[in-house]
Design a protein around this nucleic acid. Structure first.
Length: 470
RNA sequence: GGCGGUGUAGCCAAGUGGUAAGGCAGAGGUCUGCAAAACCUUAAUCAUCGGUUCAAAUCCGAUCACCGCCUCCA
């Protein structure tokens, strides 16, 4: 399996530290609002990756944090006149609701920054002791230049970073720090009403980057296999995480860094973000869009590629899902027949498709090629279904294969056989009318049922029906 | 200014040296009493210019356009 590693900027053969096991950490949301579909994309991308790793037999330990204290949290809580903790609880609940709807597998554990303060303080103490951090007033800063590899993840040159940074950092902050590129590990309390914890440096709270270093090393060990997040986290967040962690442990922090592409929107295809006010929350979108369609749309683009969010894109995803639903339902209907035949060609195609699917996904999770394999196989199975005699065993295997594959994309298609005497009676009536070539009655019954959301399909094997949404 | 990404048919998109996968939409057709479902047929020379090569979407150079990061952001 090959994975694109941001650290080396190329695809590398994936080798977890312990054969058969993968530990991964994915940067989670700051819980001060509903997540938008850009946030969802990241969650979906890494869930899809996780599911594929599990499909390939890896046991995955998956940790994703909640940032439940920082400037945004504090500001929003003030605005709403609620406590930071209440704000966090509310949006963690919303996050769970949204991601559950999108069929995201729950993380092995979701640590919260505010519940890790003791470990954060110990971590910072070590950095100070090693000379990688220094105290100014009630703040603690990381001495970036002492970590000579600083910039290795983002390919940034420290001197040029300084030029850029100097234009944006406030003068006060600038003065406190030894160097413009140093960043806060601990921020002293500014006003008495601000949430704060006791520390050796006075009351305060952790900086943003430190929490991920602490939680990652605490729950997964000093060196982890995969660390994921959005492309915008590459610098400075992940660069800083890397510096802090390796400065403390002296060991490699992450073997494979993965960064997902953005969701863009509008004619200019700009990044979806709160500051541009061009975001759509999952909470709102799911009021009108089938969560499964949104999930499939987002996971059917390779994780590193940008997704330009459009309604047409959603429609296309919906059309593909409908095709899969149709074939799975049609097979289920026909498997009740007793007209078994063995089709060696179909058997071979299944084996071949499985190989190709794995080859596609093993190549840095190339979902487009994987879907292409699924389409091709679906075509052959549909052709097979035109026959009077069908291969029960291989059709059964196909259904199982599709179920497994679709689940990697977070999609579960249910094809429950529906039984309804009232509907069946009407269908029988209609068929009687059809035998008598009474098309008027026949069509009238079909229209009646359609109005109730029931679709009829006349096949050589008889009339079958299903609900529009099913 | 520095770093990185993108540009392939109406749309989504694969493809890193040998004469353009797949999907959606559209059009035509088969099947059907008509539908539905399904199947068949059907479209691009790959942003532009130049170069290397027997051969380039694919390598090199230049240009144009767009996006992102360098400041909170998935």
């Amino acid at each position: 399996m090959k994975i694109f590693n941001t650290l080396s900027n190329k695809k590398e053969e994936f080798k977890p530290q312990i054969a058969g096991k993968v530990n991964m950490y994915v940067c989670g949301p700051t819980v001060y609002n509903y997540i938008h579909i850009g946030n969802a994309r990241s969650v979906i991308a890494f869930d899809t990756i996780r599911r594929y790793l599990e499909y390939r037999g890896y046991e995955v330990k998956y940790i994703s944090n909640f940032t439940d204290v920082d400037d945004k949290m504090i500001n929003q809580a003030r605005k709403e006149n609620v406590s930071v903790a209440d704000l966090a609880d509310r949006y963690i609940k919303a996050f769970v609701a949204d991601t559950t709807a999108l069929n995201i597998k729950p993380a092995t554990f979701n640590p919260r920054a505010t519940e890790e303060i003791t470990d954060i303080i110990s971590f910072i103490k070590v950095l100070i002791a090693k000379g990688y951090a220094y105290v100014v007033d009630n703040d603690v800063y990381f001495r970036a230049k002492k970590f000579t590899k600083y910039g290795c993840l983002s390919g940034q040159n420290i001197d040029e970073l300084e030029e850029g940074a100097s234009q944006h950092i406030s003068v006060e902050e600038q003065k406190k720090k030894e160097d413009a590129i140093d960043f806060a590990l601990w921020k002293g309390q500014k006003t008495l009403d601000e949430i704060a914890w006791n520390s050796p440096w006075g009351k305060g709270r952790p900086g943003w980057h430190i929490e991920c270093s602490v939680m990652s090393t605490k729950y997964l060990g000093n060196t982890i296999d995969i660390h994921g997040g959005g492309q915008d986290l590459q610098f400075p967040h992940h660069e800083n995480e890397l510096a802090q962690s390796e400065a403390k442990t002296g060991q490699k922090f992450v073997n494979y860094w993965l960064h997902n592409g953005f969701v863009t929107v509008g004619e200019k295809q700009e990044k979806m973000s709160k500051s541009l006010n061009n975001f759509i929350t999952v909470h709102d979108l799911l009021k009108k869009v089938d969560p499964q369609v949104l999930r499939f749309y987002m996971s059917s683009v390779q994780y590193r590629k940008p997704i330009n969010y459009t309604e047409d894109g959603l429609k296309q995803a919906e059309a593909v899902l409908k095709r899969y639903k149709n074939i799975l339902r049609n097979i289920k209907e026909r498997l009740s027949e007793k007209n078994d035949v063995s089709d060696s060609d179909l058997a071979e195609r299944l084996i071949d498709a499985k190989k190709k699917f794995i080859a596609a996904m093993d190549d840095d999770f190339n979902v487009q090629n994987a879907l292409s394999v699924m389409h091709e196989l679906t075509l052959h199975v549909n052709v097979h279904l035109n026959n009077d005699f069908i291969d029960h065993k291989n059709l059964h295997d196909f259904v199982q294969l599709m179920d497994e594959w679709l689940l990697i994309f977070g999609v579960k298609i249910t094809t429950e056989m529906e039984n309804d005497d009232t509907i069946q009676k009407l269908v029988d009536q209609r068929n009687l009318a059809r035998q008598n070539k009474d098309w008027a009655t026949s069509d009238q019954i079909r229209d009646e049922l359609l109005a109730k959301g029931i679709i009829l399909e006349d096949t050589p094997q008889g009339t079958r029906w299903h609900h529009v949404k099913a």
